[in-house]
Amino acid sequence: MRKTIDTRFADSRAADLSLAYGLRPLPALGTHKVTLGGFTVELRVLGASHQVVLGDWSETVACLPDRPGALPSSEEQVVGDHVVRFAARCGHPADFAEEVSSVIAACEADPDALVVEFPGSPLAVTALSAAVVDGGVAWQTWHAYPQAGELVWTKSVVTPR
């Protein structure tokens, strides 16, 4: 699913992103709810990046006013009966436009994905895609910053303990 919005994104660079678990649902510019392997996952694009809601738990990757920017490259956390594994990387692809266009095309073709395009550039997007994995659920996200040629990728996997 692809959605174009009129709201400019609030975060302006990858270095300002932080990771938070358990925040209440924040105001979203675009949402897409999917059910995968018994899990209901709500993919949410925020003005300051993304949030994924799974039951009464959430993962938020965003520019948050009370947290310093700096995504961990990897992290593991136990949440109830589940293990959450998070990974992130930021890069400057040699062909930024081609890389982002490829992400957009793949997510547009995926019924369990959401792409939100921000004004100013068709490459200013936040994309999320969910899938079933090993008795659990996973999602990947992409945050594209065309003004800096940066692409942030995250992947989270939630499986039973």
Results as ranks from 00 to 15, higher is better:
39 F>D: 00
1 M>C: 15
119 P>F: 02
152 V>E: 03
150 E>N: 07
61 V>D: 04
103 V>N: 05
139 W>H: 09
138 A>F: 01
122 P>E: 01
20 A>R: 13
118 F>D: 00
8 R>Q: 09
99 E>G: 04
118 F>K: 01
25 P>T: 12
157 V>T: 15
27 P>S: 01
10 A>N: 03
11 D>W: 12
8 R>H: 12
136 G>N: 07
38 G>T: 10
55 G>M: 10
53 V>E: 04
66 D>R: 06
75 E>D: 15
90 C>G: 15
100 V>Y: 08
45 V>M: 12
113 A>L: 12
143 H>T: 11
128 L>Y: 07
136 G>P: 12
72 P>G: 13
66 D>Y: 10
54 L>Q: 09
29 L>P: 09
112 D>G: 02
142 W>I: 05
78 V>I: 14
49 S>Y: 04
102 S>R: 12
82 H>G: 04
148 A>R: 10
12 S>E: 13
23 L>R: 15
96 F>V: 05
20 A>S: 13
140 Q>R: 13
131 A>I: 10
23 L>S: 14
28 A>V: 03
121 S>H: 00
50 H>V: 11
33 K>G: 00
71 L>H: 13
8 R>C: 05
128 L>T: 13
25 P>C: 13
53 V>Q: 03
91 G>F: 00
42 E>S: 10
90 C>K: 01
87 A>H: 11
37 G>R: 01
129 S>Q: 14
106 A>H: 05
120 G>F: 13
123 L>Q: 06
28 A>P: 10
130 A>M: 09
94 A>K: 13
80 G>Y: 04
68 P>Q: 07
78 V>R: 15
27 P>R: 01
29 L>M: 12
39 F>Y: 11
